[in-house]
Design a protein around this nucleic acid. Structure first.
Lengths: 338, 338
DNA sequence: GACTGGCACTCACCGGCTGAGAGTGCCAGG
DNA sequence: CCTGGCACTCTCAGCCGGTGAGTGCCAGTC
């Protein structure tokens, strides 16, 4: 078990290293933080912390830097979440309130997060798995070709073309539209297949093929849209580290371009509350020198999607966590209002 | 006026420099290209080319590298467009054909361009200024709240909420929907304001406010959507140059994050055919060490939007131009089919 | 007049060397 | 258990000299 003072030393190391980006030595530590002990004592503590794997030396006779394990301990036990200042929170709220539609909300959120944390921001679009149907619209574009428009309660709109096996009349279509909506509006996506199952049977023989085609497309859209989308921003912030790690930036940029990777990244964080994944805790090998801070957000109590920040392991965890949490909270509010 | 051989020397310098990324000297030139003259002669030619500002030396007694002016001459007079191979073209076509909707077309195009050119790709969404209305849908979400959905001939769908001054009946709404569509379907956006101008007058007093609100939102959407969107990809390719220009990459990434900058960038290229802007020809200061190759594309004869590639000035111009042109052509085909 | 070979000159680059400084581990004493 | 002292290690920056690629210029040749 680590003594209180050793934990204090670890905290001091993390704070100094995050601030200066340079290995921190025993002398500097005692000077900057009032530890009330001599450098020699700190050296002993450091040796112990190193034995336990919390810190490491880049080279013999250089200062120490925290390891992933050290950051983990710091985040779990030594650091809180630094709340944002009032003006900051007001600014967030104002900025998000001006959004005109869902795309705009997401894009503003990304820019906000990137700016606040000075890191790369990732925001997942509100997920549809828990969403409900607000409306399904069917439009006749040609005698045997129609467009299906799905509108969700989160404000998302998806459209698909449907080629009909046989022409359908405007009146039959109106009938289908009405019956379809009366069954699925307000229902969760997962319920829809069951609810529309027997719908084709209630139509005339000639329209039955078209009805089936429409339903097939609808179900397909529901499934496809459950595969979520996301938006990223602030990649320019990566260049702040280009001098230290010219070779790590490339795999990170590559990983960020792969939506699949990012979705998995956010998805892995099971806790709906805030999750911090540090360095090698990230499975993707391009991201082993980065940390990911993510949190769920939603319009009501339930989290409908996640957002987060990707940065170097040596980041300001309390500040970043504060910003991420605050932004998630306000986005949730905005979504609930609209 | 430059002699034939001097042009040949310039071409050789550009080709070698693009290949090796290193200043090229007179001896190496005569060896790699069979110029049939001695290094000394080439040196004289180089001195002349340098006087004219086509090439420069990074330091005294190093090889020469092309200047922006040199690249310009190369592109204008010395290099053609290198057509893609048949397998490459087939691959492009196949890859694009699998796209399911407009978003997918654009995203596939970006990935394709980035991969082919190994540079940063930028694709503008098909512009709406020349687009026509395919359908306008109105959905009653609450007694005094409805959703307007606009569908364009390029397959784009935009939705807006409309708050009505007074409740409107389902039948009045159907009436409005029918009359609105009969007027605007198939018409260009720019025509719409004129065509719907007198529509409110033909409605009952009680619905007139709502009709006006709907029309206002529609016109607003048309204007807003003329401000175009775009998608970028392949930013990881920027890191290929991080070793040479660690400080230029940051402003480039920043510029790429600003949609406005990129839109201006593409918009500045007036020629609907291929445009190449080299180094300082780009006004934006973050991009003065990059070149932009862009071209218009469209579903028919008219260009409805642009796409292009951003890379270092020392890029393989013939290859890049070939890839950009080919991709634009195939995207146009795909859009025309759907 | 255009091309060529030769020659002196200029730098950038690389490797080795050195001194300074920061930091460590260890030990003996309080 | 803490502290001061001491010897040791290792990085880093700066310096130096040799090497090599490349240049400009000039005199000579076709």
């Amino acid at each position: 078990m680590l003594s209180e003072r050793r934990l204090e030393v670890l905290r001091a190391i993390v704070q100094d290293y995050v601030g200066t980006q340079e290995p921190v030595g025993s002398k500097a530590l005692t000077e900057r933080h009032n530890l009330q002990v001599s450098p020699a004592t700190v050296r002993n503590d450091m040796a112990a912390l190193e034995d336990e794997g919390y810190i490491a030396q880049p080279h013999t006779s250089a200062g120490r830097i925290p390891t992933d394990k050290g950051y983990r301990l710091f985040v779990d036990r030594l650091a809180g979440v630094k709340p944002l200042s009032k003006p900051e929170r007001r600014a967030i709220q104002n900025f998000l309130e001006d959004a005109v539609d869902l795309d705009d909300v997401v894009s503003r959120t990304v820019r906000l997060l990137a700016q606040l944390t000075r890191q790369v921001a990732v925001v997942q679009y509100p997920s549809l798995t828990r969403s409900t149907v607000r409306h399904v619209e069917l439009l006749l574009l040609a005698p045997a070709r129609l467009m299906l428009v799905l509108i969700t309660d989160t404000g998302r709109v998806e459209q698909r073309m449907v080629d009909c096996p046989a022409p359908i009349s405007e009146s039959s279509l109106a009938d289908l539209r009405a019956r379809l909506n009366s069954r699925v509006v307000g229902e969760r996506f997962s319920e829809v297949p069951r609810l529309v199952q027997d719908l084709p049977e209630s139509f005339d023989q000639e329209d039955r093929g078209t009805v089936s085609a429409v339903l097939a497309t609808l179900l397909e859209t529901l499934v496809e849209e459950t595969e979520e989308r996301l938006m990223i921003g602030g990649t320019a912030n990566l260049t702040r580290f280009v001098h230290d790690f010219p070779l790590t930036i490339r795999p990170v940029l590559e990983a960020l371009e792969e939506q699949v990777v990012l979705l998995k990244l956010l998805g892995e964080a099971k806790d709906p509350g805030m999750t911090v994944r540090i360095g090698h805790e990230n499975v993707h090998e391009g991201l082993t020198s980065t940390s990911v801070v993510s949190v769920g957000y939603g319009s009501g109590d339930e989290a409908v999607a996640k957002l987060g920040v990707v940065g170097p392991t040596r980041m300001d965890y309390p500040g970043t966590m504060g910003a991420v949490r605050a932004v998630a909270r306000y986005v949730g509010q905005i979504l609930a209002e609209s």
